[in-house]
Design a protein around this nucleic acid. Structure first.
Length: 877
RNA sequence: GGGCGCGUAGCUCAGUGGAAGAGCACUCGGUUUACACCCGAGCGGUCGCAGGUUCGAAUCCUGCCGCGCCCA
């Protein structure tokens, strides 16, 4: 393998990190070296994720970018931990969406799919797929997804189609697939049935019209939002215990405009509190009415065709449903039948999730999956803990769903998809054909025209992609998969279906051990991103501007199980700043001889600063591991960010400068510590930000690649509390001196002569040189004359800093500073005295809490005394 | 209508019984030889409201108000 120019040699880091120039080359190299290709014959423990297959028509949006960042982070860490990782990519064929896309392009040529015929149309779809489909796969490469491209799958591929036919046959033979005439959700635009979950409900403005049926004492008023369906009414229903209507139950009433008489039936389903307590019943055009119709043996009268056009004979025939509605109302008004009208009236209306057309409930013959036994098994797998949902709170929602699942309508009146493998014979025979069986031939045999719901095939994804129904090595090695990661909004769409099919097809083995549900992406004001709002952000824009690493880090940094995350341009810029910081820190370290070539010196040969930073690093490793195990990406990102910026860069690098300046053994040890910390840090960051870490780490270590490097482990060294206390003391001292300088208006670069007194008494003697360096304090000369002395209270005592500011100090600023400190100390004293003055506190609170408050009070008192003395000693201005 | 969740700094969010935190934004100062995509110092909060439990409540309980999501 030849080195590409994207791999800089040691100590040759360019001054700035330029992701656009480097990312593509790094990714290509990873793929070429086969790092992402899984080996089914490996002895390593398996770790498997199947990618929720994106839609073949789709392109990468923020939700994908988030989910892919999660999966890539999970798989990269496991790979580094020595697992045999399979992350399997692919796409689903998106029946309706793809057919729509191709029909649109045909419409541009003035043709319809019917002009082409079924066979030619399907060919055309495959051509479309080859040319335009799968844009998202290239976008995944930009993000850095470590997927196994050699195992890419598509739901319409031969092997997966065979899996579909196999499971259909098995379910059919087991009596779990049946054909029945029922009310389904029908999209008049897509001209197909939809399942419940392909319907989105929204509160729309409509009308509520109250209509008098019958006349005189025999009349009854019903309210409806869909007046036009009255043409298909076959009953009026009231609640059986509704006293208003007892005398009418069992009688017949005239349906206006139709001349038909229909019975008034009593049904528990009717809500007596809604409207007049009486409802019209249209069994062929409403799911609830259909059920009432079944219970009362009512006829179902279809008055509309598949395009939503009225077919009932009479004046309304040929009108679209939305034209028919006002026409019917007008006709009723003319007859004095309208009792009340409420307009606008807001109510829930179902829309096709693909094209937003108002869904029409429609009576038709469809294929169904009997979900009850499958759903029960899906619920049990989670109840038993074989599959764990993260966050666990969403399990309840999962149970509510699977325990109340309606049978699943799986037939679609489309041409693009898996055709239902059922043949009908001339004598009314129905034959379901398995994958290796010959369909019945001969006169009069025809195959069912319909195709299967896309979810029917993607529900098989965790095992169809690994060769099922064959018993493949892949299945043996990689099933059940380890984690399924997706947004909580499609828990029901997809997760439940995979659970049902996985348990059914794989002998009760769950399709995944863990389900990680992340939240939805929102804008900086917490609003959902949507086209209509215009607040969407394209992750590709972010990658162009800030790099893939910054994009990934931004998303992961906001990701807690189940909670939504708000993102904005500024967030991405902040992540880019973080990558820049990491770049510069590493560049600085390398420029000063940071190395991993020598082993770390023994602990006793290290400074307090060295031991402190190494201990923090150990804690970081432990913390990152814990957060990975619990899918707490926000917390682990935050921990890494905080360590890198606030501890390593802000403090250790500054302290290292002092140690490097000492030269000799001290400098060499420091170079080793720098090299070691960066080595571990870059490994820890790699799953989140793979590109920049790869570049920095290969330069630092000369190693082959971080992708296949080992995941760090905590050293196990005992934490050095003394070193930690000293560094905390140093920080406090430095911060206080800087604060004084800032308040006094001293320029940051201005050097000031000074003395530090009392450091030995608070165990900070060794830290004094670093304190001086970090506060630009020079050695006092012969003419040193302290113009101010600054007292810094530390846990073990007070350090006094005398400074020669070569002139009068700003007394007003100094008084203000002291007054502020005094106010803080006095508030502290009041709080502590309040507590200690309360006998029930001292009696009942744990002894260590009381002792802590006592210590705090003493410290506050000392501080107050000290500040008073200082204030009095200040010259009067 | 049923269920779940949320209300903490200007914005987005951590913190789930013993000193109110972070990032971004904002103010002031800065050409500090890693970094101005930066450094240093600051400002900013009766933790939605009202009760209760407790020595002690952002944290636990009850009610109310507001917001969101899922289901009907």
């Amino acid at each position: 393998m030849t080195e590409t120019p994207t791999a800089p040699q040691r100590n040759e880091l360019p001054p700035a990190w330029n992701p656009a120039e480097v990312e593509a080359g790094l990714y290509q190299r990873w793929v070429e070296r086969g790092y992402f290709t899984a080996d089914a014959s490996s002895d390593k423990p398996p770790y498997t994720i199947v990618l929720p297959p994106p839609n073949v028509t789709g392109s990468l949006h923020m939700g994908h970018a988030l989910n892919h960042s999660v999966m890539d982070a999970l798989t990269r860490r496991r790979r580094m931990q020595g697992y045999e990782v399979l992350w399997l990519p692919g796409m689903d064929h998106a029946g309706i969406a793809t057919q729509n896309a191709v029909e649109r392009s045909l419409a541009g040529e003035g043709r319809s799919r019917h002009d082409l015929g079924r066979e030619k149309f399907v060919e055309r779809v495959w051509e479309w797929k080859a040319e335009y489909g799968g844009k998202i796969l290239d976008q995944m490469r930009r993000l850095g997804d470590g997927v196994d491209w050699s195992r890419e799958r598509f739901t319409m591929d031969e092997g997966l189609s065979r899996a579909v036919q196999t499971i259909f046959k098995k379910l059919y033979d087991d009596g779990l697939i049946y054909r029945a005439e029922r009310i389904i959700n029908w999209c008049p635009r897509c001209q197909t049935a939809l399942s419940d979950i392909e319907v989105d409900h929204s509160d729309d403005e409509g009308e509520l019209v109250s209509i008098r049926y019958g006349s005189g004492e025999r009349s009854i008023v019903v309210a409806t939002t869909r007046a036009e369906t009255m043409l298909g009414d076959t009953a009026v229903a009231v609640h059986p215990e509704d006293e208003r209507y007892q005398h009418l139950i069992g009688t017949e009433v005239e349906v206006p405009l139709t001349g038909r008489y229909v019975p008034i039936v009593a049904d528990e389903h009717v809500d007596p509190k809604f409207g007049t307590g009486a409802v019209k019943v249209t069994p062929a055009h409403d799911p609830n009415d259909f059920e009432i119709g079944q219970r009362h043996d009512l006829p179902a009268l279809t008055v509309m065709d598949g395009r939503g056009v009225i077919t009932a004979k009479g004046p309304f025939e040929g009108l679209d449903r939305f034209e028919a509605r006002p026409a019917v109302v007008a006709a009723l008004r003319e007859q004095g039948r309208i009792v009340a009208e409420k307009r606008p009236y807001t109510h829930a209306v179902g829309h096709c999730s693909r094209c937003d057309t108002v869904v029409e409930p429609r009576l038709s013959m469809q294929w169904w999956v009997k979900v009850e036994p499958l759903a029960k098994a899906a619920g049990d797998a989670v109840r038993d803990g074989r599959t764990k949902i993260h966050p666990a709170e969403l399990s309840k929602r999962y149970f509510d769903w699977v325990d109340n699942l309606h049978d699943w309508c799986i037939s679609r009146q489309l041409w693009w998809g898996h055709r239902i493998p059922v043949w009908y014979g001339p004598g009314g025979e129905v034959v379901c054909v398995g994958p290796d069986e010959q369909p019945p031939s001969g006169e009069g045999w025809v195959q069912d025209e319909d195709v299967l719901d896309t979810w029917f095939s993607s529900g098989l994804w965790p095992f169809s992609t690994m060769g099922w129904p064959e018993r493949t090595d892949e299945l043996a090695k990689f099933y059940p998969t380890s984690v399924l990661s997706t947004g909580y909004d499609i828990l029901f769409f997809w997760v439940v279906r995979m659970m049902m099919f996985g348990l059914y097809a794989m002998d009760g083995k769950q399709p995944f051990d863990d389900v990680f549900l992340h939240g939805l992406i929102r804008d900086q004001y917490g609003k959902k991103m949507s086209k209509t709002r215009g607040n969407g952000i394209d992750p590709l824009d972010w990658m162009d501007t800030y790099g893939a690493d910054a994009t990934r880090f931004t998303l992961l940094r906001g990701t807690s199980p189940g909670s939504d995350l708000a993102v904005a341009e500024e967030w991405a810029a902040g992540s880019r700043n973080f990558t820049t910081k990491l770049w510069n820190a590493t560049r600085f370290a390398l420029g000063n001889g940071a190395t991993v070539a020598r082993p770390l010196p023994p602990r006793e040969a290290l400074t307090d600063a060295d031991r402190w930073v190494l201990d923090l690093l150990d804690e970081l490793v432990t913390e990152v591991d814990a957060h990975f195990e619990s899918f707490q990406f926000a917390k682990l990102s935050e921990a890494l960010y905080h360590f890198t910026w606030d501890e390593f860069c802000d403090w250790y690098l500054e302290l290292a400068k002092v140690q490097l300046a000492e030269g000799g053994v001290r400098a060499e040890a420091t170079q080793s510590v720098l090299g070691h910390v960066l080595d571990v840090l870059l490994r820890l960051l790699h799953p989140l930000t793979p590109f920049i870490t790869e570049t920095l780490w290969t330069t630092l270590t000369g190693g082959e690649s971080l992708v296949v490097a080992d995941w760090p482990r905590a050293s196990g060294a005992e934490r050095d509390a003394v070193a930690a206390a000293r560094i905390e003391g140093l920080k406090k001292l430095v911060t206080e001196i800087r604060r004084f300088r800032s308040d006094q208006g001293l320029k940051p670069a201005q050097k000031v002569a000074g003395k530090v007194r009392g450091a030995c008494c608070v165990d900070l003697l060794d830290q004094v040189p670093a304190v001086r360096a970090l506060t630009r304090m020079t050695e006092p000369g012969e003419d040193f004359a302290a113009t101010v002395s600054l007292e810094v209270g530390l846990p073990k005592g007070t350090v006094t800093v005398e400074l020669d500011t070569s002139g009068a100090i700003d007394l007003a600023a100094e008084r203000k500073r002291l007054a502020k400190d005094l106010a803080v100390a006095e508030k502290e004293r009041a709080q502590c005295e309040g507590k200690l003055g309360n006998p029930s506190f001292t009696d009942k609170a744990p002894a260590e809490v009381v002792a802590k408050i006592r210590t705090r009070l003493e410290a506050a008192n000392a501080e107050i005394e000290r500040i008073h003395a200082r204030l009095e000693s200040l010259p009067q201005s």
